Amino acid sequence: MKKEIKKDKTEIISLILSTVENDSHNKQAAREFLSSENLGVDNIVSDGLKRIKQMQMMIEAEKTKDEMNSADVYKKQAEEWVEKLLNEIDFSLPNVIEKEKLTVSFRNVESLSIDDVKKILIKHFTLKFMNKKE
C-alpha cells in the first residue's frame, strides 16, 4: 500500500511540475496562471526585482568588505616594511623616491616629518603589494 501512495505522490508532483514548467516558459501563460490564482502579477514582479537588487547590494557589500580586509593585510605588510626601512642606518627618502620611481608633488622632501614620511611610504607600499598580488 505504501508503494502505491509513494507512486501516487510522485505522479502528482510530476504533473504539477510539468504544468508549472509549461506555464513558466511562456510569459503570457505564466501571467494568466498567476492571475487566475488571484495573485497580483505586478506586485510579484516588483517584489522579485526588489529582492534581486537587495541580493546584488549584499553581494557587492561582501565584496567590498573582502577587499577592505585584504587591503588591511597589505597595509600591515607595508607598515612592517616601512618600519624596517626607516630603521636602516642609511635610510634616505630621496633615495627611496628615486628607487621606487615615486612622483612627489612637493619640493622640499627633507622638511617632511617622520610621520608624514611613514604615511606616504605606507600608502605607496600598500598599493604596491596589492598590485603585485593581482
Rank of each mutant, 00 (worst) to 15 (best):
E62Q: 10
T64C: 13
S36V: 02
N95D: 15
L112S: 02
M68R: 09
K128F: 06
A78K: 00
W81I: 13
S36F: 03
E134K: 13
K63L: 11
T64K: 11
E80M: 08
L102K: 03
K50F: 08
E37N: 10
Q56A: 14
E37H: 07
E88Q: 15
E11K: 14
K75T: 06
E110W: 03
S113K: 03
K123C: 05
Q77D: 08
I12Y: 09
F125S: 02
N69Y: 03
K27H: 10
Q56L: 10
K84S: 15
A30D: 02
G48F: 02
V73M: 06
S14E: 12
I44E: 01
E98T: 11
M57N: 15
V41C: 03
L49T: 09
E80T: 13
E100I: 01
P94Q: 02
N38K: 09
K99F: 08
L93H: 01
K76I: 04
V41F: 04
D8P: 03
V73D: 12
S92H: 03
I44R: 02
I52H: 15
V41K: 03
S105K: 07
N43T: 05
I89E: 13
E32M: 06
F33E: 06
K76N: 11
I5N: 12
I52Q: 14
I13F: 06
I5Q: 11
D42F: 05
L121S: 01
G48E: 00
K119C: 06
V96F: 01
D8Q: 13
M68W: 04
L39R: 03
S36Y: 04
V96N: 02
F33G: 08
K6L: 15
D72I: 05
M57F: 10
K2N: 15
R31K: 15
K99L: 11
T10D: 14
S46T: 10
S35C: 08
V104L: 03
I44G: 03
I114E: 11
E80R: 09
L49Y: 08
K132P: 02
K101P: 00
I16C: 05
S111M: 08
A29Y: 03
A29D: 09
E32T: 08
K84M: 12
K76C: 05
D72H: 06
K133H: 13
D8C: 12
E32D: 12
V20R: 04
H25I: 04
K128Q: 06
I122V: 07
H124R: 06
E60W: 01
I44W: 00
L121Y: 00
F129H: 02
K128C: 06
K132F: 07
V82I: 00
E98I: 05
S18C: 07
